[in-house]
């Protein structure tokens, strides 16, 4: 039995459909990323699990119990908000202790444990406005973990951090998830974040799950056009029997391939991005290793790829 189970969950806001008969399963102790663009329904999905939005139809089950109608305070689910939503009139200690006090538990030992786990020692007496972005993020995580929830929901947990802090915090997040054993469901619009942290990634499109798969499988075998487009800007080719995805790093420039004309070349540090156009007018993105000879714009080249690299897409 899975920990969280969504069965045919639909939610409309006026004329807009946020969730469209969505099904999803999350296992015990799993780290699942919900990946999607804005308006894909990923935040609504998270809020429906937390209890802030009541689905129009369908069921939300936690360990087999139907919690669709339960208010947020009765759910063994904790949410970390994108804005962190730290209580500005309380200290760091009181923020972390808030959920424990609601249970009538003496907060001291558990708060000390979380302060130690998240490296917040010495900040207990500060107010949220006296914290850096990274510190506030860790306080928000500590507060969500305080009641040892079986399921932690994270709404864009890294989005508000600087780029250089984001990577390290991401690794910390995964380490903490393994240490606590809670299941994490993280909403993100950043495909690299989703692929690098999660055990499985669910791609949302127009209120439905387009594909759920482990990161590697998702990256290499995108099931639909939307998934392929969302994951690293794959090339989408039309061929006999439907569309195909072709990853830009799978294309080589070598004689004997299909003729094309180079339009743009950009050195990106780790690789070289080439934009080229085939004779039939189709534009391709190609990623070349830095060691390879880079073509110049306007040059006529020939491009090759293996038949295996063409991933058929469902229409």
């Amino acid at each position: 039995m899975s920990l969280l189970s969504l069965q045919g969950v639909s939610k409309r806001f006026g004329a807009a459909t946020a969730l469209d008969a969505l099904d999803l399963e999350v296992g015990e102790g799993e780290f699942l990323a919900l990946l999607g663009g804005s308006g894909s329904g990923k935040s609504t999905l998270l809020r429906a699990v937390a209890g802030f939005e009541r689905p129009d139809s369908g069921h939300v089950l936690l360990r087999g119990t139907d919690i669709t109608a339960l208010p947020p305070q009765k759910r063994d689910v904790a949410m970390m908000f994108q804005s962190y939503a730290l209580f500005p009139h309380m200290t760091v200690f009181e923020n972390i202790a808030y959920g424990l006090r609601r249970k009538g538990e003496a907060p001291g030992p558990r708060v000390a444990e979380l302060v130690e786990m998240l490296g917040l020692a010495g900040l207990e007496r500060r107010r949220p406005h006296q914290l850096s972005g990274g510190q506030a993020q860790r306080v928000a995580l500590a507060r969500a973990l305080a009641r040892r929830p079986t399921l932690v929901l994270l709404d864009e947990p890294l989005a508000a951090l600087d780029a250089n802090l984001r990577e390290r915090t991401g690794f910390e997040l995964r380490a903490i998830q393994r240490r606590t054993g809670s299941a994490f469901v993280m909403v993100t619009h950043d495909q690299a974040e989703a692929l690098s942290l999660a055990d499985r990634v669910a791609v949302l499109h127009a209120g439905r799950i387009a594909q759920v798969a482990p990161p590697r499988e998702l990256y290499e075998r995108p099931a639909t056009r939307e998934v392929a487009r969302f994951l690293g800007a794959a090339n989408l080719l039309d061929g006999p029997g439907g569309g195909f995805a072709l990853r830009p790093e799978r294309i080589r420039i070598a004689p004997g391939g299909r003729p094309a004309r180079v339009e743009e070349v950009a050195f990106r540090g780790a690789d070289v991005l080439v934009l080229a156009r085939l004779e039939d007018g189709m534009a391709l993105r190609i990623l070349l290793p830095v060691a390879a000879r880079a073509p110049v714009p306007g040059e006529a080249v020939e491009m090759q790829w293996e038949a295996d690299d063409l991933v058929p897409l469902a229409t």
Binding site: A50, A85, A146
Partner: peptide, 15 residues
């Protein structure tokens, strides 16, 4: 007011 604060409190078990 930031309604996320009230949601956070409810999420942490406050009536």
């Amino acid at each position: 007011r930031d309604t996320a604060l009230e949601e956070a409190a409810a999420d942490l078990g406050a009536s």
